[in-house]
Design a protein around this nucleic acid. Structure first.
Lengths: 190, 190
DNA sequence: TTTACTGTACCGGCTAGACGGTATACTTGT
DNA sequence: ACAAGTATACCGTCTAGCCGGTACAGTAAA
C-alpha cells in the first residue's frame, strides 16, 4: 500500500535526462546504427520535435551525453581512490557490467568511439588516463598499474560483448575475488 | 630494375577479396556506420552493381567477412600453440594492432559485434574461447589463463582506440617485453 | 506570458537493393 | 571453322524508404 510503482513524492525524471538515458540505452544495445533521433525520441516517449527542443542536433545530444559521462567518471575516480577495499579491488569489481549509470555511459561512449567521433575517443582516452593515474598512485609501479588497467579494459570488453547471451555468468563475485587475488601477485614485493 | 611495384607474374588480387578488404578497412576506420555498400564499392574501385554481383546482400558480405575471420583465427590458434617463444609471448605481442590480416578482420568483427549482429558476437566469442583454451593448455591454470586473456583483450581495445592519434607509441616492443615479464609473475610457481 | 512540449508536414541526401545492359571468354553443335 | 549459346564479371540507373534536420501551428501547465 505504501509502495507504489514510484515514490509519489519523487520528482519525475526530467525529459532531458530521459532522452540522454534513451540515447545511451540504444547505443549500448544496438550500437551507433540503432541510435537514430527517431529511435531516441520514441524510446524516451517524446516526440521528435520534443527531442530537438532539448538538443538542437544530434551533435548536441552526443556532447551532452559525453559531458554526463565525464562528470560520472570524475566522481568515480574519487570513489576508486577512497574505496575501503582499496582502489584495485574497486576498479576490478566495477569493470564488469553492473548496470550502473557510469557503466552504461562508458559503454555508450565506447560505441561512439568505434565510429568516427573524435570527441568520444578523446573523452574515453582522458577517462582511462585518469583511472590509470589513480591506480599508479595506489600500486607505485607504472608497469603494474598499466597491466591492471588492461585487465579492467578486458573485463569491460567481455561483459559488454557476452552480455545477456546464454552464457552462464562468467564473472561471478567469486571469480572476481580470485582474479583480484591473482593480480596481487603482480605487485612488486616491497 | 628487377623490382617493379608488383611482381609482374603475380596474379591480381581478386575483386571479391578486394571488396572484403575494403569492407574490413571501413569498419576498422569508421565503424558500422561508415561501412555502407556504396562506400565499400568505392573503396574497392568497383561499382555497386559489381559488389552486389559478388555479394547478393550486405548480409552476405558480413557472412563472408566473418567466414574469413574464422579461418584466419583458426590458423592463428595453431600459431599460438606452436610459437617458439611460447604461447603467452605470442598472444600478447600480437594483441597490439600490427596491421596483420587477422588483426584487421578481428577488429572489423568486433565493430559489427557492437551493433545488433548476433553472428559477429558468436564468432568473436568462439574465437576467444579457442584462444583461451590454448593458453589454458600452456599455463595449466584456468584463472591465470583468464587473466592473460583479459590483458590481451585490453591491449586490443587500447590499440584500436588510441590508434593513430597524437599518442606516442605506448605499446613499444620494449613495453611488451616488460608486460610479458610481469605476466610471468601470475604463473603459479611450480 | 513563458516554458515545455506534441504533431504533422516536409526536404535533401543517403542506403540497400533491384534490374537491365554489356564485354569477354569458353563451349558446343554442325 | 564458325555460328550460337552460355557463364562470368562486371557497370549504370533507378527506387522505396530511412535519417537528420527544419518549420510551424497548437496545447497545457505554472
Amino acid at each position: 500500500m505504501a509502495l507504489m510503482s514510484k515514490n509519489p513524492a519523487a520528482p519525475p525524471v526530467p525529459t532531458r535526462d530521459r532522452l540522454l538515458d534513451a540515447f545511451e540505452e540504444l547505443l549500448v544495445e544496438g550500437g551507433e546504427r540503432s541510435a537514430t533521433l527517431d529511435a531516441v525520441a520514441a524510446a524516451a516517449a517524446v516526440s521528435k520535435g520534443g527531442l530537438l527542443y532539448h538538443f538542437a542536433s544530434k551533435d548536441a545530444l552526443v556532447d551532452a551525453m559525453l559531458a554526463r559521462l565525464v562528470a560520472l567518471a570524475r566522481e568515480d575516480a574519487e570513489n576508486i581512490r577512497t574505496a575501503p577495499a582499496g582502489p584495485v579491488d574497486y576498479l576490478i569489481r566495477t569493470s564488469v557490467h553492473t548496470g550502473s549509470p557510469l557503466d552504461r555511459a562508458y559503454i555508450a561512449g565506447s560505441r561512439l568511439a568505434q565510429g568516427r567521433d573524435l570527441r568520444a575517443r578523446q573523452v574515453l582516452t582522458e577517462i582511462r588516463r585518469r583511472w590509470l593515474s589513480v591506480i599508479e598512485d595506489a600500486v607505485h609501479d607504472t608497469d603494474t598499474a598499466q597491466a591492471i588497467m588492461l585487465i579492467s579494459d578486458g573485463l569491460y570488453v567481455n561483459s559488454s560483448l557476452a552480455e545477456r547471451e546464454l552464457t552462464p555468468p562468467t564473472h561471478t563475485d567469486e571469480a572476481m575475488t580470485r582474479l583480484i587475488a591473482l593480480i596481487g601477485r603482480l605487485l612488486p614485493s616491497t
